[in-house]
Protein backbone atom coordinates (compact mmCIF):
# COMPACT_ATOMS: atom_id res chain seq x y z
CA UNK A 1 0.00 0.00 0.00
CA UNK A 2 1.34 3.32 -0.95
CA UNK A 3 -1.07 5.28 1.19
CA UNK A 4 0.69 7.71 3.45
CA UNK A 5 0.19 6.84 7.06
CA UNK A 6 -1.58 10.04 7.87
CA UNK A 7 -3.95 10.66 10.70
CA UNK A 8 -6.75 10.81 8.12
CA UNK A 9 -6.25 7.22 6.95
CA UNK A 10 -5.71 6.16 10.55
CA UNK A 11 -9.08 7.47 11.48
CA UNK A 12 -10.79 5.56 8.72
CA UNK A 13 -9.13 2.22 9.28
CA UNK A 14 -8.68 2.01 13.02
CA UNK A 15 -11.46 3.82 14.69
CA UNK A 16 -14.62 1.93 15.52
CA UNK A 17 -17.73 3.52 14.14
CA UNK A 18 -19.80 4.21 17.19
CA UNK A 19 -23.32 2.87 16.94
CA UNK A 20 -25.27 4.75 19.58
CA UNK A 21 -28.18 2.92 21.12
CA UNK A 22 -31.40 4.85 20.65
CA UNK A 23 -33.58 4.49 23.76
CA UNK A 24 -36.68 5.87 22.05
CA UNK A 25 -39.08 4.69 19.39
CA UNK A 26 -42.36 6.01 18.02
CA UNK A 27 -45.36 3.76 18.36
CA UNK A 28 -47.73 5.93 16.33
CA UNK A 29 -51.38 6.33 17.15
CA UNK A 30 -53.26 9.49 17.90
CA UNK A 31 -55.37 10.78 20.79
CA UNK A 32 -58.08 13.38 21.27
CA UNK A 33 -59.82 14.90 24.26
CA UNK A 34 -62.84 17.19 24.28
CA UNK A 35 -64.54 18.76 27.30
CA UNK A 36 -68.28 19.39 27.36
CA UNK A 37 -70.41 21.21 29.91
CA UNK A 38 -70.89 18.24 32.23
CA UNK A 39 -68.82 15.56 30.55
CA UNK A 40 -65.41 14.95 29.02
CA UNK A 41 -64.32 12.46 26.39
CA UNK A 42 -60.87 11.06 25.78
CA UNK A 43 -60.37 8.98 22.66
CA UNK A 44 -57.51 7.12 21.01
CA UNK A 45 -57.08 4.78 18.08
CA UNK A 46 -56.01 1.23 18.92
CA UNK A 47 -53.28 0.73 16.32
CA UNK A 48 -49.77 0.09 17.64
CA UNK A 49 -46.85 0.52 15.25
CA UNK A 50 -43.10 0.68 14.96
CA UNK A 51 -41.85 2.10 11.68
CA UNK A 52 -44.00 0.72 8.87
CA UNK A 53 -45.07 -2.38 10.84
CA UNK A 54 -48.46 -2.68 12.47
CA UNK A 55 -47.66 -4.51 15.70
CA UNK A 56 -51.21 -4.75 16.98
CA UNK A 57 -54.63 -3.71 15.79
CA UNK A 58 -56.02 -3.53 19.30
CA UNK A 59 -53.73 -2.13 21.99
CA UNK A 60 -55.75 0.34 24.09
CA UNK A 61 -53.89 3.44 25.25
CA UNK A 62 -56.60 5.47 26.98
CA UNK A 63 -57.07 4.40 30.58
CA UNK A 64 -59.62 4.86 33.31
CA UNK A 65 -57.16 5.39 36.14
CA UNK A 66 -59.74 5.65 38.94
CA UNK A 67 -61.35 8.63 40.68
CA UNK A 68 -63.26 9.28 37.43
CA UNK A 69 -60.14 10.39 35.64
CA UNK A 70 -59.02 9.38 32.16
CA UNK A 71 -55.38 9.43 31.18
CA UNK A 72 -53.44 8.75 28.01
CA UNK A 73 -49.80 9.26 27.06
CA UNK A 74 -49.19 8.91 23.35
CA UNK A 75 -45.83 8.62 21.60
CA UNK A 76 -43.20 6.17 22.86
CA UNK A 77 -45.40 3.46 24.32
CA UNK A 78 -42.93 2.17 26.94
CA UNK A 79 -42.64 5.67 28.42
CA UNK A 80 -46.41 6.13 28.20
CA UNK A 81 -47.15 2.99 30.21
CA UNK A 82 -44.40 3.83 32.69
CA UNK A 83 -45.90 7.28 33.26
CA UNK A 84 -49.41 5.94 33.77
CA UNK A 85 -48.16 3.20 36.04
CA UNK A 86 -46.30 5.75 38.14
CA UNK A 87 -49.36 7.94 38.32
CA UNK A 88 -51.54 5.04 39.47
CA UNK A 89 -49.09 4.22 42.22
CA UNK A 90 -48.98 7.83 43.38
CA UNK A 91 -52.77 7.77 43.42
CA UNK A 92 -52.87 4.70 45.70
CA UNK A 93 -50.39 6.43 48.01
CA UNK A 94 -52.57 9.55 47.97
CA UNK A 95 -55.60 7.51 48.97
CA UNK A 96 -53.72 5.91 51.88
CA UNK A 97 -52.48 9.27 53.10
CA UNK A 98 -55.71 11.22 52.64
CA UNK A 99 -58.37 8.91 54.02
CA UNK A 100 -59.43 7.66 50.59
CA UNK A 101 -60.18 11.14 49.31
CA UNK A 102 -60.79 11.34 45.57
CA UNK A 103 -57.97 13.11 43.78
CA UNK A 104 -59.24 16.19 41.98
CA UNK A 105 -58.35 16.74 38.34
CA UNK A 106 -56.47 19.91 39.29
CA UNK A 107 -54.24 17.98 41.70
CA UNK A 108 -53.83 15.13 39.23
CA UNK A 109 -52.65 17.58 36.57
CA UNK A 110 -50.09 19.10 38.90
CA UNK A 111 -48.89 15.63 39.91
CA UNK A 112 -48.46 14.64 36.27
CA UNK A 113 -46.43 17.78 35.69
CA UNK A 114 -44.03 16.72 38.44
CA UNK A 115 -43.82 13.16 37.11
CA UNK A 116 -42.95 14.50 33.64
CA UNK A 117 -40.57 17.22 34.77
CA UNK A 118 -38.84 14.75 37.08
CA UNK A 119 -37.43 13.25 33.91
CA UNK A 120 -36.64 16.61 32.31
CA UNK A 121 -33.20 15.48 31.17
CA UNK A 122 -34.27 12.04 29.91
CA UNK A 123 -37.87 12.81 29.07
CA UNK A 124 -40.88 10.57 28.74
CA UNK A 125 -41.35 10.89 24.99
CA UNK A 126 -45.10 11.32 25.14
CA UNK A 127 -47.93 13.76 24.61
CA UNK A 128 -50.15 13.41 27.65
CA UNK A 129 -53.85 14.23 27.98
CA UNK A 130 -55.87 14.04 31.18
CA UNK A 131 -59.68 14.22 31.18
CA UNK A 132 -62.29 14.40 33.92
CA UNK A 133 -64.71 16.68 35.69
CA UNK A 134 -63.53 19.71 37.69
CA UNK A 135 -64.66 20.67 41.19
CA UNK A 136 -67.77 22.34 39.73
CA UNK A 137 -68.67 19.27 37.71
CA UNK A 138 -67.65 20.87 34.41
CA UNK A 139 -65.85 18.82 31.76
CA UNK A 140 -62.13 19.37 31.86
CA UNK A 141 -59.15 18.53 29.65
CA UNK A 142 -55.53 19.05 30.60
CA UNK A 143 -52.77 18.59 28.04
CA UNK A 144 -49.04 18.24 28.69
CA UNK A 145 -45.87 18.45 26.65
CA UNK A 146 -43.20 15.76 27.17
CA UNK A 147 -41.47 17.65 30.01
CA UNK A 148 -44.54 18.71 31.97
CA UNK A 149 -45.64 22.09 30.69
CA UNK A 150 -49.43 21.98 30.86
CA UNK A 151 -52.66 23.92 30.51
CA UNK A 152 -56.38 23.36 30.78
CA UNK A 153 -58.15 23.41 27.45
CA UNK A 154 -61.53 22.83 25.87
CA UNK A 155 -60.06 20.31 23.44
CA UNK A 156 -56.73 18.93 22.36
CA UNK A 157 -55.46 16.37 19.85
CA UNK A 158 -52.15 14.64 20.37
CA UNK A 159 -49.89 12.07 18.74
CA UNK A 160 -49.21 11.16 15.15
CA UNK A 161 -52.20 12.90 13.56
CA UNK A 162 -52.44 15.82 15.97
CA UNK A 163 -51.62 18.29 13.23
CA UNK A 164 -54.41 16.86 11.08
CA UNK A 165 -57.09 16.89 13.79
CA UNK A 166 -56.30 20.04 15.78
CA UNK A 167 -57.28 22.59 13.08
CA UNK A 168 -60.54 20.71 12.58
CA UNK A 169 -61.18 20.93 16.32
CA UNK A 170 -60.35 24.65 16.40
CA UNK A 171 -63.04 25.15 13.81
CA UNK A 172 -65.68 22.77 15.11
CA UNK A 173 -65.27 23.11 18.89
CA UNK A 174 -64.00 26.65 19.34
CA UNK A 175 -65.70 27.96 16.16
CA UNK A 176 -62.49 29.54 14.87
CA UNK A 177 -63.03 31.31 11.52
CA UNK A 178 -66.75 30.72 11.74
CA UNK A 179 -69.10 33.65 11.29
CA UNK A 180 -72.72 33.92 12.23
CA UNK A 181 -74.55 33.96 8.85
CA UNK A 182 -77.15 36.47 10.08
CA UNK A 183 -75.05 39.07 11.88
CA UNK A 184 -71.73 38.43 10.15
CA UNK A 185 -70.05 38.53 13.55
CA UNK A 186 -67.89 35.79 15.05
CA UNK A 187 -69.99 32.74 15.87
CA UNK A 188 -70.89 32.67 19.56
CA UNK A 189 -69.15 29.95 21.61
CA UNK A 190 -71.41 27.31 23.11
CA UNK A 191 -71.09 23.91 24.73
CA UNK A 192 -71.56 20.93 22.43
CA UNK A 193 -73.82 18.05 23.38
CA UNK A 194 -72.26 14.65 24.09
CA UNK A 195 -73.76 13.14 20.92
CA UNK A 196 -72.28 15.97 18.84
CA UNK A 197 -68.88 15.51 20.45
CA UNK A 198 -68.85 11.75 19.83
CA UNK A 199 -69.74 12.42 16.17
CA UNK A 200 -66.90 14.97 15.95
CA UNK A 201 -64.44 12.50 17.45
CA UNK A 202 -65.52 9.76 15.06
CA UNK A 203 -65.18 12.08 12.07
CA UNK A 204 -61.80 13.30 13.23
CA UNK A 205 -60.48 9.76 13.55
CA UNK A 206 -61.91 8.37 10.33
CA UNK A 207 -60.39 11.34 8.48
CA UNK A 208 -57.04 10.94 10.22
CA UNK A 209 -57.13 7.23 9.34
CA UNK A 210 -57.49 8.14 5.65
CA UNK A 211 -54.48 10.43 5.67
CA UNK A 212 -52.11 8.98 8.23
CA UNK A 213 -50.50 5.54 8.07
CA UNK A 214 -49.97 5.28 11.83
CA UNK A 215 -53.65 5.78 12.61
CA UNK A 216 -56.40 3.20 12.17
CA UNK A 217 -57.81 -0.23 13.11
CA UNK A 218 -60.10 0.88 15.91
CA UNK A 219 -61.31 3.87 17.91
CA UNK A 220 -61.87 3.66 21.64
CA UNK A 221 -63.72 6.56 23.27
CA UNK A 222 -63.86 6.87 27.05
CA UNK A 223 -66.57 9.17 28.36
CA UNK A 224 -66.66 10.54 31.89
CA UNK A 225 -69.88 12.01 33.31
CA UNK A 226 -71.11 12.41 36.86
CA UNK A 227 -72.47 8.86 36.52
CA UNK A 228 -68.95 7.54 35.98
CA UNK A 229 -66.87 6.28 33.09
CA UNK A 230 -68.03 4.32 30.07
CA UNK A 231 -66.26 3.07 26.97
CA UNK A 232 -67.36 2.99 23.34
CA UNK A 233 -65.58 1.22 20.51
CA UNK A 234 -65.88 1.92 16.79
CA UNK A 235 -63.94 0.10 14.08
CA UNK A 236 -61.68 2.13 11.80
CA UNK A 237 -60.20 1.16 8.44
CA UNK A 238 -57.48 -1.46 8.83
CA UNK A 239 -55.43 -0.66 5.69
Amino acid sequence: MSTLASEYSNEVTHDVIEHRFNPYSDNGGTILGIAGEDFAVLAGDTRHTTGYSINSRYEPKVFNIGDDLLLTANGFQADGTALIKNFKNQLIQYHFNNDNKKMSIESSARLIQHLLYGKRFFPYYVHTILAGLDSEGKGSIYSFDPVGSYEREQCRAGGAAASLIMPFLDNQVNFKNQLDPETGNKKQLKYLKLEEVVELVRDAFSSATERHIHVGDGLEILIVTKEGVRTEYYPLKRD
Binding site: S25, N27, S56, E59, A78, T81
Partner: peptide, 8 residues
Amino acid sequence: MLGVSYSS
Protein backbone atom coordinates in the same frame (compact mmCIF):
# COMPACT_ATOMS: atom_id res chain seq x y z
CA MET B 1 -35.36 -4.08 24.44
CA LEU B 2 -37.01 -0.66 24.77
CA GLY B 3 -39.78 -1.91 27.02
CA VAL B 4 -42.35 -1.51 24.26
CA SER B 5 -45.06 -4.13 24.65
CA TYR B 6 -48.29 -5.06 22.92
CA SER B 7 -50.59 -8.01 22.50
CA SER B 8 -52.14 -9.37 19.36
